[in-house]
Amino acid sequence: MKYVLSFNLNGLPVDTLVKATDTLLDVLREKLNVVSPKRGCDNGDCGACTVLVNGEPVRACLTIGLTVAGKNVQTVEGLQQDGKLHPLQRAFHEHYAAQCGFCTPGMLIAAKALLDKNPKPTREQIVEGISGNLCRCGTYVEVVEAIQAVAAGKYKE
């Protein structure tokens, strides 16, 4: 049995046929070919699949796809505006906050969720904000520095 799932993806409406058991990660990656959310564990442990649903960071692998019906889903594909990198993208690049890059989309989304709510976080708040995102390359120091730089206004247009 399949259902039509309609939602807003990075500002554009999408419709797709899904099974009741498909996770949001399955829907995005396998049905819609939106591959920035990564399948690191499929178990809620790593954060590589983090996306925004109505502005809230969620683990796409733990979210049933049908629950996003009518909602706004944001992924790294939607971070660039007018062809320009988002300040967090620039900061991550310039701070070497991506090594292999596999955890990076999840990290960027976690960082965006944090700064959207709290534009001037303390170091501790930043660490907390990304502590659910595992990076086996160990870029945490650089990720924190990049987010601090954005929070300090260094990447304003």
Partner: peptide, 16 residues
């Protein structure tokens, strides 16, 4: 990084 923009835009393609 030569591949840094690819990583932060998620344009880098991994096998999965």
């Amino acid at each position: 990084r030569y591949d840094g923009i690819g990583h932060v835009t998620a344009r880098t393609r991994y096998v999965d």
